[in-house]
Write a protein that binds this DNA or RNA. Structure first.
Length: 438
DNA sequence: TCTGGGGTCCTAGGACCC
DNA sequence: TCTGGGGTCCTAGGACCC
């Protein structure tokens, strides 16, 4: 029998009924800060973006004050002062390590897991039907909390999109206790009708505007929309979302982490930068970060992009430019990549501007064992340099990031981003481990 | 004073080839 | 009168995610 649904990019659309659980860490960054400072329990906690600029995470108490994600923190000055909000710079060394611990625990509950982001994972629970799934999820939740101190909430559905919706519902009533299973729910239509389209995974601001204009305001209405119409206006991606709302899995679990196709590294500066020498240090630092990621996934890049920008928000003369350099041969060597990036930077640098931000992007990424060597270029990475790079990577992995740096990255780094309120890297730096007794 | 930093996929259109 | 058409590759832009 032919399926009534189109096969999307080779996905078997007719296989109905997966069992997916979405495990999401509650207010992850704020929760990480709390694990190492229990006094913060019950207090409003806010974690800031790089350069201490915007709000990127809040505890429930901070949410209750109406502090929104993405708002520049200086706009909340009064709240911060009067309500005693605890502010933190983001501490990715800590959050990354806590994330790994949470994911390690989740792996023990199912063989099929996709680590979706730093604070979320999809688990396939197909074949676990002999269990009460809600109870099982409750057990997962309690174990993570007990072993790491991180609170999570869990949604269960027949597709990843429905699991996301179930997760949203898990927070709706205290009696759900952070777990909601939407599979075979007798009131599924009412539940879907209570979810705004904007809250559906895959429907963002533009699509929301468009759908609302056509009187599609909630998940139930979108689920019932005509396939052809959806595909025409929301492309095949939107159609997948609609099919998922109907319980037909179209977005498979991705258990292996695919190699990145582009690696970006950029930061705003702590203060404006004018000098080429300082920009060169910054660019070298970003290349070093990018190249390390490149080597970690065992690949090499053949295109280097460098960009440079003045402050977007200020009245001062504005300048933005980027330059793309195609390498004769793909490489993952920090030294080589810094050389190319510096040449690009010199090309776009203009004197007399107050620069606020620079960055690099590495693309044209190929696996390291598939590098095409150029007939007219010498093999760029000699044996000794390759060994040296490996040793540096190993030392930095074992003793902490930046134990060894390239001289081109600079020593004092006056342009470095602000991180005035960063807590210690409790779990990844030997000299920052918490002491039980001082 | 002060406004983040990463990624993915899809589509349309142009260049080029036969 | 009628002025091919299919395929691939690349890029830019737009949507989305955390």
């Amino acid at each position: 029998m032919k399926s009534v649904y189109p096969s999307l990019h080779g996905l078997p659309a007719e296989t109905k009924g997966g069992v997916y659980a979405l495990v999401d860490c509650n207010n992850f960054y704020a929760s990480c800060e709390r694990v190492f400072n229990p006094k913060l329990e019950g207090k409003p906690v806010v974690v800031l973006s790089n350069n201490d600029g915007c709000v990127v995470a809040r505890s429930n108490e901070a949410k209750a004050y109406g502090i929104k994600i993405g708002t520049p923190i200086f706009q909340c000055e009064d709240l911060v002062k009067n309500q005693k909000v605890y502010l933190f710079s983001s501490n990715y060394a800590l959050y990354g390590d806590m994330s790994r611990r949470v994911m390690d625990i989740l792996t023990q509950f199912t063989p099929e897991i996709e680590i979706y982001s730093i604070d979320e994972a999809f688990l396939s629970l197909k074949g676990f039907h002999y269990l009460n799934l809600t109870e099982y999820a409750g057990h997962i939740k309690n174990t993570v909390k007990k072993w790491t101190g991180i609170p999570v909430s869990i949604g269960i559905g027949e597709t990843k999109t429905l699991a996301k919706i179930a997760h949203k519902l898990s927070k709706r009533k205290p009696e759900y206790d952070g777990v909601f299973n939407i599979i075979d729910h007798p009131e599924i239509d009412q539940l879907l009708a209570s979810i705004e389209v904007n809250d559906i995974w895959g429907i963002g601001g533009q699509y929301t505007k468009f759908l609302n204009k056509h009187n599609i305001n909630n998940a139930l209405q979108l689920r019932n929309a005509r396939d052809k119409w959806v595909e025409k206006h929301l492309t095949s991606v939107g159609l997948r979302t609609v099919l998922e709302l109907r319980g037909i899995p179209c977005i498979p679990l991705e258990e292996t982490i695919p190699a990145k196709k582009g690696i970006m590294s950029s930061r705003s500066f702590g203060k404006p930068v004018e000098k080429l020498t300082e920009l060169k240090e910054a660019v070298a630092t970003y290349i070093s970060i990018g190249a390390e990621k490149l080597r970690k996934q065992k690949s090499a890049a053949s295109v280097v992009h460098v960009f440079l920008a003045t402050d977007f928000f200020k009245e001062e003369p504005k300048y933005f430019n980027f330059s793309t350099f195609r390498l004769p041969t793909a490489t993952a060597s920090t030294t080589d990549l810094i050389g190319y990036a510096h040449k690009s930077l010199e090309k776009i640098f203009r004197k007399g501007y107050q620069y606020k931000r620079a960055g690099v992007m590495l693309t044209g990424i190929v696996p390291e064992n598939q590098i095409q060597y150029n007939l007219f270029e010498p093999k760029p990475l000699n044996r000794r340099r390759e060994t040296l790079t490996k040793v540096i990577d190993k030392i930095n992995l074992e003793l902490g990031t930046d134990t060894i740096q390239y001289a081109a990255e600079g020593i004092n780094k006056p342009w470095r981003m602000r991180q005035a309120k960063r807590t210690k890297r409790f779990t990844t730096k030997w000299d920052e481990i918490p002491l039980v007794k001082g």
